[in-house]
Design a protein around this nucleic acid. Structure first.
Lengths: 111, 111
DNA sequence: GCTTAATATTGATAAATGTCGATGCATGAC
DNA sequence: GTCATGCATCGACATTTATCAATATTAAGC
């Protein structure tokens, strides 16, 4: 379930925080919700149309979601289509559990 | 399960983002993990001891967790003790599901 | 090749955030 | 009352982040 036994007992708080940071923005949540609800992948143009922010800003938010590996993308012609990473929701759920289910005294860490 | 039927179909992305923002910091995650793992409530002094940040900064992070209603606190003498809000984990889990489980086309919203 | 359209990137700016030192506010001991 | 201690708040500063306009890139059509 983990790699081998569970050698990483203490959550990597920086990584977890980075993941939460990626979803800590209303536009990025709207994008993710759109992707999650969509039958297939979604054109960037849908976001530039639907959201009250300019195209570069949409691109910026998509980049953050890409770098957090919460979405994947694919170019088809001039258009680029996004879809949620298959494990997006699961990874955030795992982060949640890593924080809230006791790894014993994993809490106040070494330094 | 919801109020009556489900009159709020579209997720309130601002509220959800605010919740994720509250946990989008490594020190706040460490604090939450400590609280979640603790038998009973935890003195602020434990955080000022354990974390490599000054007392006002600890207070700042605790305030953000308070304002997100992810923790509750109680004064006992000179000391203040924190514990996780009973629904802290559940609220974040609900936020996750609100984003990733289709409210149909709740996605690219009105404006 | 040239042109147009969709998206990404760059650079600048403003706002939000994390951090700290100084100060204030309670509480308990005296 | 005074003093000391634990924590919160305030104000300043530095870093990060969101946003935009301008530009670059990529692909398709000509």
């Amino acid at each position: 379930m983990h790699d081998r036994d569970h050698p990483e007992r203490r959550p990597d708080f920086d990584r977890l925080a980075a993941l939460f940071k990626a979803v800590a923005d209303p536009y990025r949540l709207r994008i993710l919700a759109t992707l999650a609800a969509a039958e297939d992948d979604v054109c960037v143009c849908e976001f530039t149309d639907a959201l009250p922010i300019n195209q570069p800003t949409v691109s910026h938010h998509l980049r953050i979601l890409r770098e957090a590996e919460l979405v994947t993308w694919e170019r088809r012609g001039t258009w680029v289509y996004y879809r949620p990473a298959p494990d997006a929701s699961a990874r955030i759920g795992a982060a949640l559990r890593a924080i809230f289910t006791q790894p014993a005294h994993a809490s106040t860490a070494p330094r």
